[in-house]
Amino acid sequence: MNTKAQLFCAWCGVGFLVLFSIGWWFIAGYIPPISPALSASEVAAFYQQNTGLIRLGMAITMFSAALSAPWVAVIAVQLKRIEGEFPALTYSLLVAGAVGVVVLVVPPMVWTTAAFRPERDAELIMLLNDFAWLFFVMTFSPFFIQNLVIGLAVFSDKAESPVFPRWVGYFNIWVAILLIPGGLITFFKTGPFAWDGVLAFWLPLLVFFGWFVVMFPLLLKAIKQQEQTA
């Protein structure tokens, strides 16, 4: 059986991580995040001083976001092997993953809108900046469902040589729960639960990246196992 397409999709996950980091972090400079406690003129200054870099960075980020689609799809293919004929969890993963792509594509477009006319009213730039950050950090729900259904599917695997080891199920559910604090950022401008806070931003970000790093070799292994048994 040919697993080339699956391997390509798995590597898209790596591409997503690398390109997203380049565009969003190194070029546009959104790490560390712009504090929600800044005044309108301070926020506007960020866009006025980094206009070109933000435009370029967001173009790359926007492109990279869609690379998470093949990545989710290949995980879904492996879950389908577990679930068989009526793959409800697999379909949930696909729907949640599709929404996840939207959540990753829209904020770069709003950030680049702010950088499109940096000379406009500072209050308006702040509005766009707020919108993009809230959309980006607060929207944990599709990713929560995505990790939850992966966990549940792994638990349901009763095969003698399972697709994923069972600890992967616990790991995914742990990641799902860790993303929840992002949902609290609407209440705070400073502190650990603000959109630049240690518990609402840094920790979930680290865990989200870590999730790719952990899942990637496991996926390759599962694809290899499928190739050998088929």
Binding site: P165, R166, W167, V168, G169, Y170, F171, I173, W174, I177, L178
Partner: peptide, 11 residues
């Protein structure tokens, strides 16, 4: 099972 400790220690 060993897996539950990934969750417990993680939490």
């Amino acid at each position: 099972e060993v897996g539950i400790w990934v969750f417990i220690l993680g939490d």
